[in-house]
Design a protein around this nucleic acid. Structure first.
Lengths: 143, 143
DNA sequence: GGGAATTAGTTTAGTTTGTCAACTATTAAC
DNA sequence: GTTAATAGTTGACAAACTAAACTAATTCCC
């Protein structure tokens, strides 16, 4: 619980620092499309042709359901997503990208991972290493 | 510009995912002390005995100066920090932790990097690897 | 079958976070 | 010494968030 955690501690501090530093890049890309960082993330989470129940979005964002109502309201008002009642459970509403939302999403993703991506500063082997480590952290099974 | 960036892209997606997943841990720790995630971060940035000009805080958080005014207002109202006019430039105000703020900060840091830290899931060598990589990303010179 | 408890989403009210523009005070520049 | 630039505050406002009360649909279970 002492020496062993020194690296974990250090890594954590760096991670936090990194994330906040990213607020420089993320929002600037959002600005181009008039999207806030959170809106970028929501757009990111809704894959084209794969409608997502609102509740799942709330789970993923770890926020209150009522917050999601507002987020979706704003995106829907801009014609980027669409609410639709679910067939099998009429309480559920699924959100799905409009063609315009789909187009914007592709654009955003392209920008996010393009050449200006801060990760391009890493060597190829470091990048692979990072992916491996992150998979453990995120506890990813698929893809 | 094509194959080479695949890992960078993947890493980026994982990072974003991880970042948002952390919103589960960070705020829950904050709740314990009634601190929002941003407040935790601000507290984290002000080291005890090392007063920080407000402007530097705004730079680090990549936000408007007026936002910092509000953040510091709230922390000051809770007696965690203190504004003080700088000696060499009377326009500048430096913020510094109160004894109580200092205590709370230590507590928060301890919780953040404790055994429940998600990074403890990594092997020691992975942790070292992560630290090395993050240092490149954060472009760290000191410490 | 039919009431009680759950669940999904919305509404309302309120706080925090964040931006922008206008303002004050101080400092630097020429 | 007037003019710039800089540090911080204020005010007005939008966005992101929470908590509690509400509606509608579903499930539990006797």
């Amino acid at each position: 619980m002492s020496r062993m955690d020194a690296d974990a501690c250090r890594a954590w501090q760096l991670l936090v620092k990194f994330f906040f530093a990213q607020r420089e890049h993320l929002p600037s890309l959002g600005e181009e499309f008039e999207l806030s960082p959170v809106q970028c993330h929501v757009l990111h989470l809704i894959e084209p042709g794969r409608p997502l129940p609102m509740g799942r979005l709330a789970d993923t964002l770890r926020c209150d359901a009522s917050n999601v109502t507002g987020l979706v309201d704003r995106l829907e008002a801009r014609g980027l997503v669409q609410r639709q009642p679910s067939a099998d459970d009429r309480r559920v509403k699924v959100i799905q990208l409009t063609p315009e939302g789909s187009r914007l999403r592709a654009h955003v993703l392209k920008q996010m991972t393009g050449g200006s991506c801060p990760l391009s500063r890493l060597s190829p082997s470091q990048q692979r290493s990072l992916v491996r480590i992150l998979k453990v952290l995120v506890d990813e099974k698929s893809t």
